[in-house]
Design a protein around this nucleic acid. Sequence first.
DNA 1: GTTCTAGAAC
DNA 2: GTTCTAGAAC
Length: 729
Amino acid sequence: MEAMDDHETTSGGKDEAKPIMVILMGAPGSGKSTFCDLVMRLSTRRPWVRICQDTIGNGKAGTKNQCLTGAASALKEGKSVFIDRCNLDREQRADFVKLVGPEVEKHAVALDLPAKLCISRSVKRTGHEGNLQGGKAAAVVNRMLQKKELPKLNEGYARITVCQDEKDIQAAINTYSALGPSDKLPPGFFGQKNSDAKVQLGIMKFLKKKDPPGCSDPVTNVSPENIQSHTTKEKDSNQVLESCEELKKASVGSSISFENAPTLAFPSISTADFHFNLDKASDIIVEKVEEYVNKLGNARLVLVDLSQNSKILSLVRAKAAEMNIDSKKFFTFAGNITKLYSEGGLHCNVIANATNWRLKPGGGGVNAAIFSAAGPALETATKARAGSLSSGKAVVVPLPSSSPLFSREGVTRVIHVLGPNMNPQRPNCLNNDYDKGCKILRETYSSLFDAFASIVRAQGEPCNFEKEFKGEVQLDQGSRNSDQKVKREAVCEADMNKKYKSFVKELGPNVGSSGDGNTDGQTRKAWGGWAQALYDTAMHPERHKNIIEMSDDVVVLNDLYPKAQKHLIVLARVEGLDRLADVQKEHMSLLKTMHSVGLKWAEKFLSENNSLIFRLGYHSVPSMRQLHLHVISQDFDSNHLKNKKHWNSFNSPFFRDSVDVIDEVSQYGKAILKDENILSMELRCHRCQSAHPNIPRLKAHISSCQASFPAFLLQNGRLVFLEGIDANH
DNA sequence: GTTCTAGAAC
DNA sequence: GTTCTAGAAC
């Protein structure tokens, strides 16, 4: 660190220009290009050339060779060069170091910033030269950092500068931009403050993040500040973090499912502008949270207030702790409800808005903030749903993908609620009638949580109702009357669901382990003749064409009706293994074989077309007999994709990622299955999650949607795609 | 799984 | 009128 402040340079012989080659090293989002730009802008005396792999190809992806050639010719002209590519490992850098002889001094500048910072920057940026932006970036950065090797002097550098924060970077910019044409910097290794292995600790945490409260008391408060200090600590006291990690690992079975859980962030209703008594309000919040929290499966509720010192947050926190409410499912959060993800790292797919009866923007407080952050799209979407709102009620508004709240924060719905008013300056004041006020406030929270529960159910979270429904229908097949009765009820339920109406009491509380659907032999339907084709292929591959690989364990074939540019099937050859529901622990090695065969094919396709993205997985309830793994590219560009079932079978929880199936079978001995009923859920873009009224409109949208994939898919290798453009060797 | 088609939705 | 879905048959 001390050396960083040493900007002293030693002048060489006058007039003799001494070009240097500075090899930058850093993940996407670490600021390499910005670094080069700033030095080049500030440097008045030394000519610099930036060799950037993202731009050198003139629109196409650049190659390392182009960079090498470009660098050599610039150096020959007496210019100094920046090698602006990731250069994360020694091998990547070696060709540049070897490029020129000892007459050119080689430097390395490593921008070794916290992984989560690089990721969040790459995820957010737009217009990146190498088109590495959006959600895709998170997984790319993650993978790239796994092979990070900080530069060492014995690779051939005269000088290495490691920057671990913005201050270090600024110092290095000053150092390089001050260099005259013949100046020479002191050689040596500068700037590294801790060992490189530890710095990366943050990476998986970022991707799997959330739940920072898990490390402390029952009901905790999280704020951007807390997360921030977490980040800073990461560098200085890894031990603290590691023990935290250990704690998380120890409770992995329960905590892991919460990280991507549907989450409702809500403000305290009526306590701000409507002057509702804080103590009474906090009682009601805790009472209602307690009533709902265990009915919501793994979904989470988060009470949000702007201020770290919020009275209502501390009251609620204390009372919730007293009631022993599970802090994974309910916690408080100090931060801006419109920036929970971008500023606080907290992903909430649904936020509540304490609105006014006219459902109009403005008025100050949360309502103004949410309408303003969501843009005009929210107002339009709200207007389409309702013209006004009475107190105690809630209205759910799906957020159009054009809204910044959607694209930036990942919020897919806003639930407007109107609480009781105790402020004489506002309409419908209750004149201090707290009997009435408390009743309405209770009703408001019930409406809010009911609406959220409906959303959770509509999204296909496991719930008992679905299972029971399915079981009943199938057991009752003999009796026409009861069959009809059940069907009628089901229609009624589905209808309720659509309208986000009341919440079914039986909604499954114990979600974690009992998500399997129809494993009972009794409830199993018979296979139709048409459903036997894959079975016959598995048993007698020689009778079939269209097979592209065959072994004792599996047969690989192109899907007869591909639902995307690339869509193939890895078929198990075990007799009696009809579907995912039949899979048990004994099939673990088969599952792994199927996965690796599928992965191999995905990688082959990627080598032919590096823009493809693949997903590998099983249908919870397949139409065709014989266990088969789908390997499907995520363009879904196919004329065979024609209906809702097609779409949702690959883009809802009905599609079970191979990696998750493997985890579940090894852990619980069976895979979690989703009911076929979820195939009728609304159509949503698999990238930006926007809703679309029908298949043609959805297809028109996905043909151009470049939004990042949801965080869930970017984790654990659920999506398979090529590493960053810098990383191509 | 697809195809066909009635009729709902626009 | 055209577009789109969903159910039945295969």
